[in-house]
Design a protein around this nucleic acid. Structure first.
Lengths: 407, 407
DNA sequence: ATAGTTAGTTAACAGTATTTACTTATCAAT
DNA sequence: ATTGATAAGTAAATACTGTTAACTAACTAT
């Protein structure tokens, strides 16, 4: 499939919108800047910034804070994204659980809900999900806010339109119009609606919600190691998620690590997923239930079979990371997903493999770092909320200056 | 390393520049459009387009063509990028050869020079290269034109600044400030100066110079299989080359295909480069000279050793393509580089491997296509020229309207 | 010929950011 | 306390850009 979209062009209102979102983006990345600091950081004059800030204050996107004393002259007033007016809804359909979160413009989690889920149909899952969302929307904390949109993170690749889930092997689903089906069940919820793969959503969120303490890298690859293994790459400015033509970018679980290895459900041999994934580790240990795995590990941490299985899985992960470093060379590789709960038993062999097999002529390597967000259950849900937020902030409908609200 | 660049913002002249380059880009992608058609294709009115076109005609960026009759009313006048006024210089330092090309705004090759090169120092190489460039600049065809810049494509990863070559194993060079060194040798040549890895440059060029007959895909991965094996990914609109933090993205030659395979010069085992590259194939056949390889293949095309070596190399390439499809899922994978001269002996096993090992649950796959540009020697040189051109067209210095030239 | 249609231009206009000048608010030295 | 220096933020005039509306130009169909 080919496309030749219109070359970017715009009128004066487009320029105004661009500058408004530049102001919002500056304050999102660095909360508490003053008008003058925003002006210095952009290519805009303080007059333009002042006008834009005034409008954004009137419209409820920004709020003012304390006076900031920085040296000699008149102190400026700190500006922040308004935490109190809007809400974003992020939803993840996991293999074993549903997760719903709401957060503010600054990424602060307001409410969260979790629901264990047995393997079932898309329809039943969405019925329950809709109830969960309705419930969270009725919370006093949320009800008073304007909802900017809802995002849905799913455990499999999405169609190019990002309205259908192409395949979710661990749910047994295939080519389901999940987004529209959820929307039918939540007819009153307006705003922006988005769907994305959970690893790509998580990648976006990890990148987007970085702050001064965890600075934003130039590019970030999120590895989601759970029942299967997927990844998401976020790159450059403005942030771009690499999705591929068919939405299959990041399906690293079917990268071949051992040409004569075990057979994978995809039909090939030695896929990464046959070595480092929830199901492959359980299969190697002869465990059928998800919950049994932790027990087995807790009970016999040094038991030969458990230890070597995790070691082999970790080494395979390390090899996978090496290959990804050589093909994508992201500034950071963030390891996430439910398998991270296995801790050093998995990660130490992985890191050892990664470090010992660097190209000896090219010692630079991607940094491998842990998640910033601690709770693995809400990474993807908050990530897809971040995708909503990013869209919302870059397209705040601007009214002409003549319609300015006087105060 | 982290960066937090200024959020994009701009003044009125920025908007004007944006619209000017939208007009240029529309005419580059679809030569022969009329003012009215450009206006329909962008979000601009015909008045704005008319004014921009007038200015661009005056400044020599555009030229008018024949009247276009399309239905009822007054015919419009065809517009084209001006082929006669500017020139771009693209240079490739290959492992065995230097290539210099010049081309027009529409990518038409004006002149080319090639020079065989024995392994030598950067200094001597650049001395010879500078002479070659001076020579081509003195050609009557070029001398009358304005040179917009020079691009340099190199057989190895570049530093993040893209001013240094980090490593070129096949040349024995390491961390050389090639761009500045070349510039010192060509002090009179102004304009834009750029350096990039040859595979990335080729990828950009293959994407950028597509036309109605070879439509532009959504994303493109160029595989450069030569002495080593590298790749370049170009993605999205506006076009973006994925380079990685340290410029190491696309170094797929050091992706591991056989964990217990042959040792590679990078220190690891079973790298792609140990299976599918000029040196690995020669090593497998016990041939030391580059030129001997073609002779050996021509002499004994069905000889067991030759055939099985190429088959194994091809299968390894197919496996590599599979992994790249699963991690990047580009719309197109273009196979280039000097190894393509081996033809079906290499490519057939590769394509067979690729097709037979698709994920049986996800039948969509990246399309594997041959180069559009026939001559493999100038792909990278023309590609880096395209990078220059892309920069030049998006930043044509616009003068205020009051300074308009009357005619 | 005449009406209808589309391309392109002109002049008046509306909207945006900037420049310049000004007010406000703090600090530091007297 | 008073004064001067410095910086933040605002107001009015200005310059620049794209748009709207009206017009001319050029061709087709009847």
């Amino acid at each position: 499939m080919t496309f030749a979209p219109r070359p970017q062009a715009g009128d004066l209102s487009f320029l105004k919108q661009l500058n408004r979102s530049a102001v919002l983006e500056a304050l999102r990345q660095t909360p508490g800047l003053t008008r003058a600091e925003v002006a210095q950081g952009s290519k805009l004059t303080k007059v333009t910034v002042g006008a834009a800030v005034q409008a954004l204050l009137n419209e409820g996107w920004l709020q003012e804070g304390d006076l900031q004393r920085r040296g000699g002259g008149r102190p400026g007033r700190a500006l922040y994204l308004n935490e109190t007016r809007h809400a974003l809804v992020g939803v993840e359909i996991g293999v074993h659980e549903l997760h719903v979160v709401t957060c503010t413009l600054r990424g602060t989690i307001l409410e969260e809900r979790h629901l264990a889920l047995l393997q079932t149909t898309p329809e039943e899952t969405l019925d329950r999900l809709a109830i969960l969302v309705e419930e969270i929307l009725e919370t006093p904390e949320i009800k008073q806010r304007e909802c900017l949109g809802l995002g849905l993170a799913v455990p499999g690749p999405t169609s190019p339109s990002q309205r259908r889930l192409s395949l979710a092997p661990n749910l047994g689903w295939r080519d389901v119009a999940l987004l529209d089906m959820l929307r039918e069940r939540l007819p009153h919820l307006g705003g922006i609606w988005l769907m994305d793969n959970e690893a790509k959503a998580a990648a976006f969120g990890e990148m987007y919600f970085r702050n001064a303490h965890h600075p934003t890298p130039g590019s970030l690859l999120y590895i989601s190691a759970g029942s299967g293994i997927g990844s998401g790459l976020v790159e450059g400015r403005p942030l771009r998620v690499i999705r591929g033509v068919h939405g299959l970018a990041g399906e690293i679980g079917h990268t071949v690590l051992q040409p004569s290895g075990l057979y994978c459900h995809c039909g090939n041999r030695g896929c990464a997923e046959t070595l480092v994934s929830g199901w492959s580790i359980r299969a190697a240990l002869g465990i059928s239930e998800e919950s049994e795995l932790d027990k087995a590990i807790a009970r016999h941490p040094e038991q030969n079979r458990v230890a070597t299985t995790l070691k082999h899985a970790g080494e395979a992960l390390g090899m996978l990371l090496l290959n990804l470093h050589h093909t994508l060379n992201p500034a950071e590789i963030v390891i996430g997903g439910s398998l991270t709960r296995l801790g050093p038993a998995l990660m130490e062999p992985a890191l050892t493999m990664f470090e010992e097999h660097q190209n000896r002529l090219l010692p630079d390597a991607s940094r491998i770092v842990p998640r910033v967000l601690d709770d693995s259950r809400i990474v993807a849900a908050r990530g897809i909320a971040a995708e909503i937020l990013s869209q919302a902030l870059s397209d705040t409908p601007a009214s002409p200056r003549s319609a300015r609200v006087e105060n």
